[in-house]
Amino acid sequence: MSTFTAGQELAPKSFFINRAQLVDYAQASGDHNPIHQDEAVAISVGLPNVIAHGMYTMGLVGSYISELVGGSEKIKEFSARFTKPVVVPANTDVELIVSATVAEVSEAGVRLELSAVCDGVKVLGMAKALVAL
């Protein structure tokens, strides 16, 4: 793992989310809530369209951290608030831009503050992780 210093901004990465990936995630996670797959159901409960599982977005951020620090097994704490939905229309790859800032480096490890932005809007709030050195 490379050296981290407090205040350091880490390179962003774009993920592209489409309906097929939401189906894959639903199968892998067991979360088959139809608002993540079925447009009619999503609209019937007042959503603009199908939305990604909050845990899918958070999971992608987890993969970003894993790549950054050289292994998901180093992640000790991980938290996020689901502030805005990621809307996924049919036949569209929705870009999610994930980035991080090093908040603190201590004996406990590296504390990261994470950002996930979709269409200019932050979709996660208070997203943080502690990664062992």
């Binding site: 993920f15 990936q21 894959d24 995630y25 199968q27 892998a28 996670s29 845990m55 899918y56 958070m58 999971g59 992608l60 987890g62 993969s63 951290i65 894993s66 790549e67 292994g71 998901s72 097994e73 992640i75 991980f78 992780a129």
Partner: peptide, 15 residues
């Protein structure tokens, strides 16, 4: 892991 684009499959992703 595959559904999240995570390459490490020796242990489970954090979520």
């Amino acid at each position: 892991a595959r559904s999240l684009g995570e390459k490490n499959t020796e242990s489970a992703p954090p979520t």
